[in-house]
Design a protein around this nucleic acid. Sequence first.
RNA 1: GGAGGGAUGGCAGAGCGGACGAAUGCGAAGGUCUUGAAAACCUUUGGGACUCCGGUUCCCGUGGGUUCGAAUCCCACUCCCUCCGCCA
Length: 426
Amino acid sequence: MIDIRLAREDPEAVKTALARRGIDPAEVEALLRADAESRRLVGERDEGRARVKELSRQVGEARKAGESDRAAGLSTESRALGESLAALDTQAEAAQGDVRERLLWLPNLPDDEAPEGAAPEDNVEVRRWPAEPRVYAGHQRVPHWEVGAALGILDMERGAKLSGSMFPLFRGTGARLLRALTAFALDRHSDAFEEIRPPTIVRTETMVSTGHLPKFEEEAYHLERDDLWAIPTAEVPLTSMNRGEILDEADLPLRLTAATACFRREAGAAGRDTRGLLRVHEFDKVELFAYATRDQAPAVHADMVARVEALLQALDLEYRVLDLCTGDLGSSSARTFDLEVYAPGCDMWLEVSSVSWFRDYQARRANIRYRPEGGAPLFVDTLNGSALAWARIWAALVETYRRADGSLELPEVLAPYLGNRSVKPA
RNA sequence: GGAGGGAUGGCAGAGCGGACGAAUGCGAAGGUCUUGAAAACCUUUGGGACUCCGGUUCCCGUGGGUUCGAAUCCCACUCCCUCCGCCA
């Protein structure tokens, strides 16, 4: 969440920043009114409490001095005061809850550098690799769901039999390819990132910390019986790993990586991109994650983008980097670069990574701080990026690396993980 | 799933319902001493909110309750440990 103090001190700046992503300034005004009310009530209540405490202290003194009449009188007085405070206390609690609720629903302030815009069309393409657009042959113009079915490495029908549509089932070399990609990516980042294998089913509190709840409840799978949530990304457990802790500044930037399955209901996208692996309910992904100081964050962010690009280049897939405009930015993010890979078979740019800088928006929700040299604790900045989302990479690989005879010859870098780089038609 | 035990500051560990945000030890920071260091000694050493910057208030796993007053008593929940059962 954003810093309420910033909204108090410079309401116009906050309104302007949020307006860039389409938030009505009236929401900020409502927040500030709620905040003023909350502070007034809490102040009054605390004054009352101070008097009760003082009276209670005097009761003790009177008792000790053997003045039981005086003690009884003070006791009665204190009790009456305490009772009259109950309603005020309820109001103060409610007012504080109201402020917090409003803060939880408010998105992050976009970074000044984030391009202005209302919709995905306004995202700015900052880079493309290779610089010259590639030319693809006819045999590469076959969508991956056809290639996968023909080679017996993707079985969407059986996935649907087990779990419904948009739950892919990979088999044979198709399944092994996912395992290879995960090992490959994890190995490439072991120089700076500690590998984690977190739980993929988490508490409500864990989902709230990253901003996935309460706003995006519809997007997540919920296990009602145990009130647990299936994670939509490893960002969720990784962010909360140090929830409520104060980190040593010397440990920053603290970088983590994890390979997990990710679960998404895709409730808002029903009917869109439903073919093959374009949009699925469950997919594997390697995530890069970091806690950093504000000063370190830009470099960490740039490094993550560079690492993701290096993976794509190693896989030799054509891609572009988009600087997300204010209107398309994720709710918790201040600045995001999306990486989209070109899939020649379906002739689409597929988002395979989203590298975001959240400033202290998530840390504030999750209460993650660090202690600067000799100072009071500060919230950390959190950053993360996919490296990469394998279902769509799988699709792009299968289309890009299809040969004229219908077989597949996968990239050299995967050879150590894959055993056999080529897949022949059955 | 069943039976017990537990949760207090960076760590360890006290804490009779009344000056307890909390003894003591360790660790850490600063200082005295020293050529330097060690030792010794002294001082400091949790976090949040509000603030008229004097203070006020909240936090002893979490949430309720009892009481004039709760770290301390009661209830529920969560987590950890031990044992039993079950299990990949």
